[in-house]
């Protein structure tokens, strides 16, 4: 089952650090978002493989939006 990486708050996507197929370790940065003029690294909740990236840089996101999925 895919585990989602969700946005913890409203903001904007700055950078995508991983691509589909990449291996990630738990706590490794997947996406960097900007909220309140601050860069917030969003980390992988579990170790696994990136199945899907659902956002692109510059995109506005709401809290709880799914940013990526880890399989």
């Amino acid at each position: 089952m895919a585990i989602p990486v969700t946005a913890p708050m409203v903001g904007k996507i700055l950078k995508i650090e991983k691509k589909v197929g990449d291996q990630v370790e738990e706590d490794e940065v997947v996406v960097v978002m900007e909220a309140m003029k601050m860069e917030i690294p969003i980390v992988a909740p579990v170790s696994g493989t990136i199945k899907e990236i659902k956002v692109s840089p510059g995109q506005a996101v709401q809290a709880e939006d799914i940013l990526a999925e880890i399989g």
């Binding site: 913890p8 708050m9 706590d27 909220a35 309140m36 601050m38 917030i40 690294p41 969003i42 980390v43 909740p45 809290a63």
Partner: peptide, 8 residues
């Protein structure tokens, strides 16, 4: 805790 987002 890297999974801690306290900003808001």
């Amino acid at each position: 805790n890297k999974k801690s987002y306290l900003l808001m």
